[in-house]
Design a protein around this nucleic acid. Structure first.
Lengths: 214, 214
DNA sequence: ATTTTCTGGATAGCTTCACTATCCTTGACT
DNA sequence: AGTCAAGGATAGTGAAGCTATCCAGAAAAT
């Protein structure tokens, strides 16, 4: 497949593809001859990944680069991968500035919720930053709510890990790593939109239970 | 409080405050005299809100404007608020382009998961878009995983609604609406970071159970 | 064999977002 | 009276993410 065909079939304009090439998001094609490179299905897949991450998840290209770095060259052990690469994974949220108060909040509540072995992951920082902001804006942290969140998070995480084919000999460790990294980021909007839908559902239900006086 | 003092105490530079004023994110101060405006604690709070939404949640100012619109002039019924304003609420994710396939996926799975009364909310569109992307990238939808997500989402949503002081006569309906709108967006990163932490936790646990052959 | 097409590389331009800086007039405190 | 500062208008900045143009030269078409 030549560049023009890649652009054709992927629907991504040529200049954009060149841009991704320059930015190191898309590997160069294998040179079929001195001046023409050959692109394969892997390039198509990668293009779909880039566009999808940007358009659906809103992650900056910088973060996509980190993700494809993990996909191209994943740690050998799938077990290590989840933990080790979690920090490289894009979130769509900006990297929060670490304040003392946020760190302290995170430490306290993570302990309370039973997340012991988690030292200083970016996720913990984001957790602290969000709690600090909520507090700042007059929505103080509530233990009952947080433990419900922890339960929900563990439910979701359990389902995530259940899908990973850990011991599958047919799947190389790198593929497993890619699978889990991708699943982690791709299902974030799924969980969030379901939460909003569930809120609407419950609000409606409680409206039925207790009709507002007219 | 004069502009300079507002800038001083909030830590936001004067030009930025002027920018927010121009953009309609911050209401004008009450004119203390012809050329000097008086800013109050509400302005400080609003500034904290703006900066927090941008810095912690990464929402574009455009979306913050939608949110403050809801806060400034919320629907009277707190019940109606959640449902009606959910569509105005920022997400940090871009508005997904609605494809047929995504819509169909959303319809099918929402039905499967028992979300019946939900027609065409933005959340449903995002849900569909995310599923379509995952499928496209080789992570097909898995019913068991999705129903775990639905359970998790309902758990979190239940905790959200439990905190809302529905019938509290001391809290005006507008304050209740503001509270729920803010809670909805502020706790999104909390849930997400807990999921990642729970993944790491579970991965570690399964590593202990079944040590990799060395 | 010659013409046309297209490639990869380089460079420059564009658009949006979120500020940031400058200028100016006019009113306020001292 | 004189300096200071508010507020409005306008323009400039910088990053992100493209998009457009130009070019030398190899490949394909005729």
């Amino acid at each position: 497949m030549k560049l023009a065909e890649l652009a054709q079939t992927s629907g991504v304009p040529i200049p954009s593809i060149k841009y991704y090439l320059r930015a190191g998001l898309l590997p160069a094609g294998s040179p079929r001859s001195a001046r023409i490179a050959e692109y394969g299905p892997a390039h198509l897949h990668r293009l779909r990944l880039i566009r999808g991450m940007v358009e659906v998840l809103g992650v900056p290209l910088e973060s996509v680069r980190a993700l494809v770095g993990v996909l191209d060259d994943p740690p050998a052990s799938p077990l290590a991968t989840l933990g080790a690469t979690m920090s490289e994974l894009p979130t769509g949220f900006p990297e929060p500035a670490a304040t003392d108060h946020a760190a302290q909040l995170a430490k306290h509540w993570l302990g309370e919720l039973g997340f012991d072995a988690v030292p200083d992951a970016p996720s913990a920082r984001r957790f602290g930053a969000a709690l600090a902001l909520a507090e700042d804006l007059g929505i103080p942290v509530d233990g009952a709510q947080l433990s419900a969140y922890a339960r929900a998070a563990r439910t979701a995480a359990g389902a995530d890990l259940a899908r990973v084919p850990w011991g599958d000999a047919s799947a190389p460790a790198t593929a497993v790593a890619a699978f889990s990294a991708l699943g982690t980021v791709l299902f974030e909007p799924v969980l969030l939109s379901l939460r909003r839908l569930a809120q609407a559902e419950l609000a409606e239900a409680s409206a039925q239970d207790e009709p507002p006086e007219i």
